[in-house]
Amino acid sequence: MEAISTLFWPTVAVLLTLAIYTFLWEDNPIYKVAEHIFTGVSVGYMIAQSWHNIIMPKLIVPTTNYFSNGRYLLAIYFIIGGLIGLLYLSRFSEKTSWLSRYPIAITVGFYAGFKIVPIWMTNVSKQLNATIQYPNGDSMLNLKMFGKFFDNPTWGNFISAINGPIIVIGVLLVLIYFFFSFSNDNIVVRASRKPALVVLMLGFGGSFGYTFMARISLFIGRMNYIFSDWIEILTTTLGG
């Protein structure tokens, strides 16, 4: 009996794993079962998570705390939040469903405004800064590097001297490539088109190839589970 109980759950895991892999051959009922189990389990998990991680700690606990601390204004603000959240339930009826526009409008508006500054900082300012200088403050177009190359013209020195300028030119080309509203006759736009595509394609190819190994590791991990962990449990329980 004990053998069965230690073996049961790991075997379920192995069977589900194999069920998913059958999908690679073709769609079949075994995969469909695993897929529907996963959908159900994940939604079930999410329901409980909403309760444990949002409604309890973010709504009920703080509200009661604020009430007992005498911070009534805050408590009322949180209750209003809860009520606005409840407006989503108006979608059950066609007639009242427009009420759900309020929570939608608030979330969309708030996050749209809230994200502007971080987006600017991380995507624009920081990236442009990194195109001007290396993290240690050296200039991307470092004339010293060229000087070093002319003093000692080796391949390595040449590469380290031109890497910075290549990055700068690459970034500029890509930026110009994505202009929408300048006419194609514009000489800058037209001349930068093909070189920009070269940079983009080299980048995409490199990034694709680089991720390959990580993805294979995932599959190796699953096989490790079956061929090392599960087989161990199987042989120990059946053998001993």
Partner: peptide, 12 residues
């Protein structure tokens, strides 16, 4: 150490 466990340790 059981026999299987040793095998797993070696595999690891």
């Amino acid at each position: 150490f059981g026999a299987e466990e040793i095998q797993v340790a070696i595999n690891r």
